[in-house]
Design a protein around this nucleic acid. Structure first.
Lengths: 357, 357
DNA sequence: CTGAAAGCGCTTACAG
DNA sequence: CTGAAAGCGCTTACAG
């Protein structure tokens, strides 16, 4: 096979006398080419203080001439790797794509890159994934929807700059948090449903002993129901994440003796499954049953779903969290806790055309 | 909550006299504790040849006693980082979650971890993401749905072990490929639709000058139509990936003078959007319009979609690809090209109850 | 402003 | 079987 102008290899050949055995252009090659010291090149690389414009220009020219790229692993041995680690619990939930968009926006024009690790829905536990990322010298960690408690998160924060998205802990001092106001979001849902004539409003939540965002959403749901005088209709079903479990639970809720006339689901993905089960049971949405989700992901807009949902501005959350993380990497140690106000996006799944009793 | 034997922090304290400034337990600490040389510890770590059982047991004990974890970045300077890089074009497509499941299964019980990078739908081009991963010393690369041509892929493969999922190139010698038989898959779709009475079958594909899987699916569609004697109804619309563009194109197709009675979409996500547009136009699925997708993702099963789709066993693809990549990392240089036979999963979106003219 | 030298935590020949 | 030493490609005090 012939290699016409393959830059990697041909560069390796071109500078073969200077290049090391690995075939990679190193800082030493650049220093030689520019006629300066290795330390000088390093300073230019880091935009560090104390290099003349002439030297900088000179070094930059050699860098691009030789196609030099710093090896993150080597930089990490002494300084930074310019990599942040994102720990996601589940790649399936489309909400995380919104967060990612914000993360990438924040990283734009920086040397930093984000690497994603999936914790659940794999053999990894969340803690094992965090360890893996620390072993790989991530400069900072962004944990999304973490199920760890404050103590564990503090332990991690002690070792690496840490920002948590989707974890409420306004008293946490070792790491930053970025959230929407989940309690408020849940209350918006209840108010909206009540205003549209629904009364037997149930909530489908996740089984989790530690998730603070679920706790807040459940609390908001309870408060909303109490304030509407619907305390006797409060009912929270906690289901695991798996498709099968959600279906079983939804079916059980809808075929009981006193079925709910509305179900508030903790995330859109679950709401889509509830819509599916309701359709299979021959229920009409929104007349027999209202369904409301959380996250306002792109699937809500599809006409076959038309799902009312809470928008927590995933892109904003990702953007803010990344900015906070960069600040921490640069040295900030005081904790910041950022909270976004959620808003409800009303669609057909909860607005009966003919009104209700 | 108390941390019984909290490995990270308490260990860090425990060995504070031995630990280096970074607070991390190093290979040197282990060597000291076990009373052997650093080289010996390294050998145990790599399961390398030439250490006695006694020494091995001894070293292993010290490792777990001290809570030693090798620093991937440092290992990478001389050897491997035990990290593979996954390059995904788009985190939104639920098909990639299936692939990930297979990847994680293959990595189970190994020292390796997968780190994900998103290439499109971000500021990064695919090539820039690949460079980032090479800079970060990934031992191998798994590229999914790459839009690079053979030459670029070969350039990459020259520098790192490479396996491509969703890229047809049976002649490629420098890297492995793992695919389903896309041409066959597309033909299955056309045959199924024809058997169910559809004739004006259109295809909604992606704009891409380089994607070989799209080329194969389009070819299969054309062949299927020709063989069914429907050559005059062949019509392929190439749309960009964005939600807005897809909607505009779908609407244009369905409101033309000779609208199709069936649309074959290159991936499920697009098919869901087409269903949405059709519903908004008041069309009944499957009676006015059949819709078929590709990938058989979990969303197909939802009753509101009920989407007929081609199953290409994403989990299998991810599993195989990862195995092949591990072989390459261990030294294999001959190319392997793995192809899975697709099967159609028929659902309501393409099976009219009353039959068709 | 510039550079020589030490060192980050590992692995790899090479001796013993 | 075991270990001392060199070195991977960078950054960081420290001199000049």
């Amino acid at each position: 096979m012939i290699w016409p102008g393959g830059w990697a290899l041909s560069k390796g050949r071109f500078v073969s006398e200077k290049a090391t055995r690995s075939g990679r252009v190193t800082i030493r090659d650049v220093a030689e080419d520019a006629g300066v010291s290795v330390a000088a090149v390093s300073k230019v690389l880091r935009d560090a203080y104390g290099v003349s414009d002439a030297l900088r220009t000179n070094v930059r020219a050699s860098m691009s001439k030789l196609g030099y790229r710093p090896l993150a692993a080597a930089r990490g041995m002494r300084g930074q790797t310019y990599t942040i680690g994102l720990v996601l619990p589940d790649i399936r939930n489309p909400f995380f794509a919104d967060i990612m968009t914000g993360v990438n926006t924040a990283l734009e024009r920086s040397q930093y890159r984000a690497m994603i690790g999936i914790s659940h829905s794999s053999v990894e536990t969340e803690m094992a994934m965090v360890e893996s990322m620390i072993d790989r010298q991530m400069d900072g960690l962004l944990m999304i929807g973490s199920t760890e408690d404050r103590e564990n998160l503090n332990t991690i924060a002690q070792r690496k700059p840490l920002v948590a998205i989707g974890h409420h802990d306004p008293e946490a001092s070792g790491f930053d948090t970025v959230n929407n106001h989940d309690q408020q979001g849940a209350m918006l849902v209840v108010k909206h449903l009540v205003a549209n004539g629904y009364r037997r409003i149930a909530m489908l939540s996740l089984i989790s002993g530690t998730s603070t965002i679920l706790a807040q959403r459940e609390l908001g749901y309870r408060r909303g129901m109490m304030e509407a005088g619907l305390g006797k209709h409060i009912g929270i079903v906690n289901s695991s994440q798996t498709l099968r479990e959600v279906q079983i639970n939804a079916r059980r809720m809808l075929t009981g003796s006193q079925p709910p006339d509305a179900i508030f689901c903790w995330t859109d993905l679950i709401a889509l499954e509830v819509i599916s089960v309701a359709k299979e049971l021959g229920l009409s949405i929104p007349d027999d049953l209202a369904v409301v989700g959380y996250d306002n992901t792109m699937f809500c807009d599809f006409a076959q779903n038309n799902l009312t949902s809470i928008d927590q501005s995933g892109e904003q959350l990702g953007l803010q969290a990344t900015r906070l993380l960069m600040e921490r990497i640069k040295g900030r140690t005081t904790a910041e806790h950022f909270v976004v106000t959620p808003r409800i996006v009303v669609r057909q799944s909860s607005t009966p055309t003919s009104g209700r009793s």
